[in-house]
Write a protein that binds this DNA or RNA. Structure first.
Length: 411
DNA sequence: GATATTTGACCTGAG
DNA sequence: CCTCAGGTCAAATAT
């Protein structure tokens, strides 16, 4: 009710000020264990290495926490970093990997909540490297990053948040690297972008603008920049860039936007336009328009549009399939960015111009098999149950009925 | 005029 | 049982 009243309107406030150079982080290969579920939903082709979607719990609390427990937090981060550091930063296209992984899983990336984070935290500390911190980025930097309003009391959470943040950063960085390299893979998932970019001078650990630049397939990702042109974005990271939700291959319709309590950024809710598709996704964006986190919920019940392996291209929509739902591509869908990953299960090859969207898409769609399975009734009897939580292993995610379903009016 | 987005209200679940 | 927070709906508005 009233919560949304806060900051509605995703207006994009003035971009914060300049941002520090983006650090480079190379995400290391992640083991499937990261994704407890989905083993091969993809149809078997799924990559064994799955990278957890970097959903970063973005919220002001993060900063708060961080600040309050700065030291501890630093330590925590450092520890995590150390672990990561050990992993070799393969130049592989993270985006693709991610995509595949997500896709295979049909992954529903779920933003880890505080509680969930706890687990994450554990993982972070564990030897299993979620990502490595390349020379470009120094953990110390992260550690030293200033944090805005401290909020003592949430220590535990801060760690988790931090961890998540770091992960996200890593991923983001990676994506960016790819982009720059010419790889168009992008991370649609939650990347922690500068959480505090403008809001506060805080943590510099966020590669922020990366996201903004990333998708830049110029034509595909339609960024809404206050004024700037896409080209500028590349060079001007600080510019206010509003990233549109990544195109997943299906059309999403924004049906709501809300300000979360602990978050400084509003969360946008999108629904798959497909009639039967219960898939929804939530995107958190910073005021700058950067995507901070993307969470997918439920799987698409419909078949994913067939990507004709056409690379993006403005007119490269997959033939006919582009209309995924028969609807014109909404702004959110990022017209033009349709490079669907070939199949739900795999898309690497197709990704000529993978954009964040692709990844996104992958994450939501079930692979054909999955889809079928869903209907068939494997465990997916209901897509809703498909809620796969990236690291949430403790909860019975499968038993999740429907997060919050509004009661249906009797009439 | 149609479609998409915005926004307040409502509902549900968790604490 | 109550309150809080999150998620969704639907009307209003914008494009």
């Amino acid at each position: 009710m009233a919560d949304s009243g806060g900051g509605r309107g995703r207006g994009a406030p003035p971009p914060g000020a300049g941002q520090p150079p983006r650090p480079t982080i190379s995400p290391p290969p992640v083991s499937a264990y990261d994704f407890p579920f989905h083993g091969d939903a993809a149809g078997g082709e799924g990559p064994s290495d799955v990278i957890p979607c970097p959903l970063t719990p973005v919220s002001s609390s993060f900063f708060d926490d961080v600040e309050s427990e700065f030291e501890s937090f630093a330590q925590l981060v450092q520890g995590a970093m150390n672990s990561f550091a050990g992993a070799p930063p393969p130049p592989w296209a993270l985006g693709e990997e991610l995509m595949d992984a997500e896709w295979d899983l049909g992954c529903e990336v779920e933003r880890r909540e505080e509680g969930d984070l706890g687990q994450q935290n554990v993982e972070m500390t564990e030897p299993s490297p979620i990502f490595t911190v390349p020379p470009g980025i120094s953990p110390s930097r992260l550690l030293h990053s200033p944090s805005p309003s401290p909020d003592p009391g949430k220590f535990g959470m801060s760690h988790q948040l931090v961890a998540a943040q770091v992960t996200a950063q890593a991923v983001q960085s990676q994506f960016q690297m790819h982009y720059e390299a010419g790889c168009s893979s992008s991370l649609s998932v939650a990347t922690a972008t500068s959480l505090a970019q403008n809001t506060s001078p805080p943590i510099s650990l966020t590669p922020t603008q990366e996201m903004s630049t990333l998708p830049s397939n110029t034509d595909n990702n339609t960024f809404e920049s206050g004024e700037g042109s896409h080209s500028d974005q590349r060079s001007q990271p600080a510019a206010l860039i509003i990233q549109k939700p990544p195109y997943d291959g299906c059309n999403w319709r924004k049906y709501a936007q809300k300000m979360l309590k602990g978050s400084e950024y509003p969360r946008s809710y999108y629904k798959c336009k497909h009639p039967d598709c219960p898939a929804t996704k939530m995107i958190e964006r910073s005021f700058d328009g950067q995507i901070i986190a993307v969470v997918y919920r439920r799987q698409h019940k419909h078949q994913r549009p067939q990507p004709n392996k056409r690379a993006k291209g403005v007119g490269a929509l997959p033939s006919g399939s582009n209309e995924l739902d028969g609807n014109p591509i909404p702004a959110d869908s990022e017209p033009g960015s349709q490079a669907y990953p070939g199949n739900f299960s795999r898309s690497n090859e197709t990704m000529a111009l993978p954009s964040a969207s692709e990844r996104d898409q992958a994450s939501n769609y079930g692979t054909p098999e999955q889809l079928a399975g869903a209907s068939g009734g494997e465990e997916t009897g209901d897509v809703e149950q498909m809620k796969v939580v990236m690291m949430r292993t403790d909860e019975g995610s499968d038993s999740e009925p429907d997060p919050k379903r509004r009661k249906i009016p009797a009439s």
